[in-house]
Nucleic acid binder design. Structure first.
Lengths: 335, 335
DNA sequence: CACCGTTTCTACAACGTTGTAGGCAACGTT
DNA sequence: AACGTTGCCTACAACGTTGTAGAAACGGTG
């Protein structure tokens, strides 16, 4: 039931190549021939075989976006923007979930997607620069700062400055015992390290002591981890008057734990997050946060990939920075 | 820098086909030949060209999942389960966002994905049975009930009964003026219609009047729509003592609007949702909801697709039902 | 009218893979 | 010694597409 160029050609009484020319918009085809071919195409409901086209042309028109987890809203929102940005280039986006596991990330980066996609936009959690260096070929754009001085183009935001600014916001409101939730071992998360650096920068600049007991680790950054970390802080006896959570889902979990402990936000404890996911605009209270320009991040990533595909693949790697802004909402207001 | 079977063959001193046989695990290859070939494969870091393989075999090993929006958490969570379930069959999942727009859905269902994927798991919003009937070939499994008596296998949950049960839960708690948020024109959303039917069934069975002014429409089912619908209900003067929102994001928006109006949940107004997304387990208050077994839905969908691919493509279409349960949390408790 | 450039179309080969058919040894059986 | 069987391997063709080369028809120019 599926037709090929040959079927269309026979029906229209022309050669296979002429049909191919019509399909590809080649100019030198007589109008009446073109019409006949188009009619045959319509009658047979012909659509080209992308695998064959790819085999011949070396391009698939498909790029992949690999993220740790789709049900972390930040990545889902980012995915939507990447799909939109890629559409402008006529690309379809294959979305891949790595689970943040190094093995799976390696497979995605090098294996399964091979020869099926033209390029890859990759948000790695566990992958090392070495893993990436061992890859041949497939053009790639990295998101975030897990892999430094990597062998690929990258889009980042200035995590350190953003984290400093949101912490300064808390300090300006009069908070003095500011906790941080989401720290990780250095080899796990570069984002965590950078955001922690911004946090300590702000404290230092304001003449506040860095108190290690106020910093709570969180290996994953889900709501449950944020709630657990907040509970741990509260039961440990330290009484913060504000909390900087390294992402919004952690913050939403923290809000929940504070609520369960009978503490009011922001009156008793102010809370800020990072990412500006949609939930934070409707949570109770709404969440103050750092809002990276996800649309811009997606655009830049797609653009870098396009340049790499069309241009010099051996050109030196580029690193572009996307803007962000502070989004101040109820969880820090009214004090 | 990318090698082909031919390169491996030359290096190992065998024919191209022998390398192919090694790659595909064909039994009749002498151990030492096999070893030589494998060594060459490793040295050249050879990986097969999937497009060529597909062209030859007619299979890609890729299936697509098309959903309206990834940043609706329900779909993101579902996507994760589908990816997991598909992995058991060695399939990669290409995730596609349709935006719920009919044109885009048609494109996805028939066009771009063509010849690139073996099959499609599809959660349509706007597509009609006609649109689907016009498709040739690609095996497909539908999720949800937008397209009835469609030309494809389908996985559903019993929306009517589930909606009735969650409404009965509210009635049992003593609520008498139960609002509904999320109704839609019949041609837009079958889920809306079925959930509304379950709601009215429950009212009727309890001898409660159906009050049209208590039913608020919502064309999309996002948080913002839920908040707007709730505000509209409140300002219209009707004073519900409970609200059944047709999905969780609507409910989270409604929670927000109630909070802004100074009403307590569940003391003043009880709220229930539908979908059991993760947000609802951490919201303030946590959200009572209908919890469809998303893992099972994904499994069934993948299974149906596998059967369709391996078996008789002309066999009569099947419809499977996935289980659900009520998840009672704070937004209806304590009354 | 001979010539040349342009337009329109076609035949062929190639992209990298695998199914089919078959060849050649080596072995066991008669 | 002749024969069939099995194990191992190779040559060839084909999947559906498009780039290249070139043929045929056409129009304009000297």
């Amino acid at each position: 039931m599926r037709h090929r160029l040959k079927d269309v050609a026979e029906r229209a009484g022309v050669s296979v190549k002429t049909v191919s020319n019509v399909v590809n918009g080649y100019v030198h085809v007589r109008p009446d021939t073109r019409a006949r071919v188009e009619e045959a195409i319509a009658e047979l409901n012909y659509r080209p075989n992308l695998s064959a086209r790819h085999l011949r042309k070396g391009r698939t028109g498909v790029i992949a976006l690999a993220v740790p987890e789709l049900d972390i809203p930040y990545f889902a929102e980012l995915a939507r923007h990447v799909v939109t940005a890629a559409a402008a280039y006529g690309w379809t986006v294959l979305i891949d979930q790595t689970g943040g596991r190094r093995e799976q990330e390696r497979v995605v980066a090098s294996g399964i997607t091979d020869h099926l996609i033209d390029g890859l936009i990759f948000s790695p959690l566990a992958l090392t620069a070495e893993d990436l260096a061992s890859l041949d070929g497939t053009p790639m754009v990295l998101l975030g700062e897990r892999v430094e001085h990597g062998p690929a183009d990258r889009v980042v935001i200035d995590n350190v400055t953003a984290a400093r600014e949101i912490t300064e916001h808390l300090i300006k409101l009069g908070h003095r015992r500011i906790a941080a939730i989401g720290s990780q071992r250095t080899d796990e998360g570069a984002s965590a390290r950078l955001r922690l650096a911004g946090y300590t920068d702000a404290l230092r600049a304001a003449g506040l002591d860095y108190d290690e007991t106020l910093v709570a680790p969180a290996s994953a950054w889900h709501r449950a981890d944020g709630a657990a970390a907040m509970r741990a802080l509260l039961t440990s006896g330290v009484r913060p008057d504000a909390v900087f959570c390294f992402n919004d889902t952690l913050a939403l979990g923290a809000l929940r734990a504070l609520h369960e402990a009978g503490l009011r936000v922001p009156e008793d404890v102010a809370v800020v997050g990072f990412d500006d996911i949609e939930d934070g605009r409707f949570s109770i209270p709404t969440l103050s946060t750092v809002a990276p320009d996800k649309e811009r991040i997606a655009q830049l990533a797609v653009e870098l990939l396009a340049n790499r595909l069309d241009g010099d693949r051996a050109a030196p790697t580029k690193e572009l920075s996307a803007p962000y802004r502070l989004e101040i909402r109820e969880s820090t207001q009214g004090r």
